[in-house]
Amino acid sequence: MTTLETELKAFIIETLNLEDLNIEDIDSNEALFVEGLGLDSIDALELGVALQKKYDVRIDAKSDDVKNHFASVHNLAKFIEMSRGKP
């Protein structure tokens, strides 16, 4: 698990007020929506806005890739790193 993945887990818990979860409860490769963590479309919108503000990334909701970016914490971390110009 990368430092960014750990940071994102804490950010998701805080942003979405998931008080019953700890960082250790979230697997980096676990699905964020429906199965897995069980987030819904309202959570996706709230999380997307918060990610744009905190990490200064542009999320195009119409992009075919957006579903993949939000599939897991691992994928979100990869998206943010790519957006920042890091490999």
Results as ranks from 00 to 15, higher is better:
Ile42Phe: 15
Ser83Trp: 02
Leu21Gly: 09
Glu5His: 06
Tyr55Leu: 05
Val49Tyr: 05
Leu16Ser: 02
Thr3Lys: 14
Val49Ser: 08
Asn75Asp: 08
Lys62Glu: 13
Leu8Glu: 08
His74Ser: 10
Lys9Pro: 02
Ile59Arg: 08
Glu7Asp: 12
Arg84Tyr: 08
Asn22His: 11
Ala71Thr: 04
His69Ala: 11
Asp65Gly: 03
Ser83Lys: 13
Leu47Ile: 06
Ala71Arg: 08
Asp25Gly: 09
Phe79His: 02
Ile13Trp: 05
Ala50Met: 04
Gln52Asp: 11
Asp40Tyr: 10
Glu46Gly: 04
Leu76Ala: 00
Thr15Phe: 11
Ile42Thr: 13
Leu18Pro: 03
Leu32Ser: 06
Thr6Trp: 04
Phe70Val: 01
Lys54His: 10
Glu14Arg: 11
Glu24Met: 07
Asn22Thr: 14
Thr15Ser: 14
Glu14Pro: 00
Asn17Gln: 14
Arg58Lys: 14
Leu8Pro: 05
Asn75Ser: 10
Ile80Asn: 03
Gln52Ser: 13
Glu19Lys: 13
Val73Asn: 00
Glu30Thr: 04
Arg84Thr: 02
Leu51Met: 14
Gly36Thr: 00
Asn75Ala: 12
Gly38Ser: 09
Leu16Phe: 11
Ala44Val: 00
Glu5Lys: 04
Asp25Tyr: 02
Ser28Tyr: 08
Lys53Asp: 15
